[in-house]
Design a protein around this nucleic acid. Structure first.
Lengths: 259, 259
DNA sequence: TAGTGGTCTAGACCACCTC
DNA sequence: AGGTGGTCTAGACCACTAC
């Protein structure tokens, strides 16, 4: 066992105390101040800050100016990705809205439409030329006024020509999937890619993410029986979301409900 | 536009340079040294370190003592979760081994078996009493000698009684899924939960994860037609892995291969 | 041996929140 | 006004890597 630097020892002690619930809600979520900790651990304030920064980067605590350090709490919201838009469910926001409302929480979203050249990775998945025209429908979602996720759906130009309402700014009441189905374009399958990373500064701003919280990236490419028809990239706050997939026979699971 | 602190300005400039490929492989992945940057930005070394720490926490660069800062590179490995263990494929490691080998890379894994009380979240999913006996089969996987993921599979005690080889230390040649199927226990469906967070210190050590890299958590609960039979928790290095799901009709996708 | 990053200190001043 | 965290400095010494 090699000797650990002081700021790590300090972080280890505090991490332990946090895990044991010393600063557990609802009583005293606040940690002692930096100067108190400096005294307690016989370290300079900067060293204390290094230790606390470690815990912040692990997602255990957050800090705010003038207030202090608090232990984080999170109750993740679950999204059932395999059910998400099965025939019977409309797609755009509606499933999201009902899910959130059913959980007794308040949904809210902003929405916009753009027409732009398809980014390379999108173009590849939509199987169109890079930089060819695409329609982007972008959605910024909140739950209880907390930023939750962003969702960007790209449609290829040829599809927007066949289904012009895609490129119009307003919401599509019945959901885009239904709208497309009504025009003879049916989504028969999709391919999901899931990854994670730390947020870019832009993402951190949009989702109000602090240090120590990764994003969960979900990229879904939808197919008609002939070709790709859309590509949706959802960016979740990693501390607030979990994705589920049901595959095969699930009858046992639903019988005696594990939530 | 409010004034940004110096260390952020500095990070913004460097982030920009990195994105533009100024330090792109294969030539000069190394960034200038801290003292060079201190001169260039007219800042103290500590301020430079704050800026660099930001980029590290974003997963853009890493540092090593005596060497310097390098931009990270990653080519993620893709795991097809919906295909992973469909009837025809054996389960334990085998699918992993063939996948990795097919990608022209070298797989390696360590393995151990434990018998322990089931952790609360596992017990709930296996629908057994908390702290009742469970068999844990644990696997630590490497690709090209780089730690890749850990995988912990829990089986309930009643199942281990019916299928005693589960609790034996050795590998099960034909794969556990097949072994169980041969004893009349067939997995007919499963439920996947996917989430992300920063690694615990233990995980960071096992997976040799540096700052700024989250883990991708994959929890799969498998069901027979009567009840849950196993729960597998896989912990991936977020920078090296991506998960895929194929749902519905995928015939178009496979025709003209998007990899 | 020279250069790199890693740790640590002591002190200054600023920005924000609460009272 | 007083306490909190946020930024920044200047300097010291250590640990690792390269040559």
């Amino acid at each position: 066992m090699s000797k650990q630097p002081k700021y790590r020892q300090l972080a280890d002690v505090l991490r332990r105390e946090i895990e044991e619930g010393a600063y557990a809600p609802p009583n005293k979520r606040r940690l002692p101040s930096e100067s108190e900790l400096a005294t307690r651990f016989d370290a300079s304030r900067n060293t204390v800050r290094s230790g606390l920064a470690l815990l912040v980067s692990e997602g255990l605590i957050t800090s705010s100016q003038g207030l202090g350090y608090e232990v984080t709490r999170h109750e993740p919201f679950e999204l059932n990705a395999s059910r998400f838009e099965n025939l019977n469910f409309p797609q755009h926001g509606d499933s999201y809205n009902t899910d959130v409302t059913n959980a007794g929480r308040k949904p809210h979203q902003t929405f916009r439409v753009e027409i732009l050249p398809a980014p390379k990775d999108i173009a590849q998945r939509l199987r169109v030329e890079p930089d060819s025209r695409a329609v982007l429908r972008f959605c910024h979602r909140y739950v209880d006024n907390v930023p939750w996720s962003t969702q960007a759906t790209y449609y290829p130009a040829w599809l927007a020509d066949e289904a012009p309402r895609l490129a119009e700014p307003g919401d599509i009441e019945e959901g885009t999937t239904r709208y497309l189905a009504a025009r003879g374009i049916e989504q028969v399958g999709y391919f999901d890619e899931i990854s994670t990373r730390m947020p870019t500064p832009d993402e951190a701003r949009l989702l109000e993410i602090g240090a120590g919280v990764p994003v969960l990236l979900w990229m879904r490419t939808g197919y008609s029986s002939e070709r790709p028809i859309r590509c949706t990239i959802t960016t979740f706050r990693g501390d607030l979301n979990r994705m589920n997939y049901e595959i095969g026979d699930q009858s046992v699971r639903s019988e005696n409900g594990i939530q």
